[in-house]
Amino acid sequence: MRLQLIDKKSTSVGKALIFMALTTFFLTTTVACSQNKDVLITEIGVNPPRRPPSQPSKAGDFYIQGQYKHLRGDAQGAIADYTKAINLNPNFGAAYNSRGLVYFDTGDREKAIADYNQAIGINANDAEAYNNRGNARAAQGDRNGAIQDYNEAIRINPRYAQAYNNRGNARASGGDRKGAILDYNQAIALNPRYAVAYNNRGNAHYGQGDYQNAISDYNQAIRINPNFAAAYNNRGNSYAAQGNKQKAIADLQRAASFFQQQNNQALYQKVMDNIKELGQ
């Protein structure tokens, strides 16, 4: 899966370093800010499905086959299967929601929102559909609409850690880092092994200039997920902001190594360029 870039920030050592947040889930999307140009990653997830039947005939069969194709990168095949499931059962809310995820993954936010609307129309208490529609609205720059959807998801399911994390991202993107930190706190309280939420809370601390607490959060994210490339990168940025070039370069080198292992040449090269700048 592609990993998305946050934006460039100027640090106290005068170098522009990549600041990023990303997920360990299957799919990612960026949430763009308006004025401060931060970009944060929200997350959506697809549960690993059972192997589809060899001869699908029922709506549920096509739904499972759609999930299977989606996770294997066959977006158009997944859309076709979810559409067959919906044609066989027009009240199949989960199929609308899942097709929305595929549209979202391919960048068609309008069709994604239309499918989430259908899922919510079928089941007004579909917390996942509200959360996913919030992601799509956030990706369109509709931060207020996104927060309203995350609020609904949380109202329906107060233990929805992902919705708290996503609402935190939306708040942070609008400059409300205190509110974002409260949401990340809640996400972490619900799921103490939520590496993404630790990383995102670290980003909020970083945005406040609180580099030490940012480093503590990145430490936690890395402890939970030792291969979390963005957390190494972000911790490196925090060390750079403190003027500690040695630790900053060490972390950026780790981040670059992980991006290279993931065959993400674009981010690998950007981090390597930043290492070069820091070393000057």
Results as ranks from 00 to 15, higher is better:
M1I: 05
Q4P: 06
D7V: 08
K9P: 04
V13L: 13
A21N: 13
T23P: 03
T23N: 13
T24E: 12
F26C: 11
L27H: 11
C33W: 06
D38T: 09
I41M: 13
I41S: 15
E43R: 11
P56Q: 04
A59H: 07
Q67C: 13
Y68T: 06
K69Q: 04
R72E: 06
R72N: 14
D74Q: 10
A75Q: 09
A80W: 01
N87H: 08
P90Y: 10
P90R: 08
G93Y: 07
Y96S: 03
A112N: 03
I113C: 06
Q118S: 15
E128H: 06
N132F: 07
G134W: 07
A139Y: 02
A146L: 05
A146E: 03
I147C: 02
Y150A: 03
N151T: 00
I154W: 04
N157R: 07
A161C: 00
N169P: 06
R171F: 03
S173W: 00
G175F: 10
A180V: 03
L182R: 11
L182E: 15
D183P: 05
N185L: 03
N191S: 07
V196C: 05
V196E: 15
N200W: 09
N203G: 10
H205Q: 03
D210Q: 04
Y211R: 15
S216F: 08
Q220E: 14
I222E: 01
N225G: 02
P226C: 10
Y232Q: 09
N234D: 11
N237V: 14
S238G: 10
Y239N: 00
A241L: 05
A241H: 11
G243A: 08
K245S: 10
A250H: 10
A250E: 14
F259T: 00
L267C: 06
Y268S: 05
Y268E: 11
M272S: 14
K276S: 12
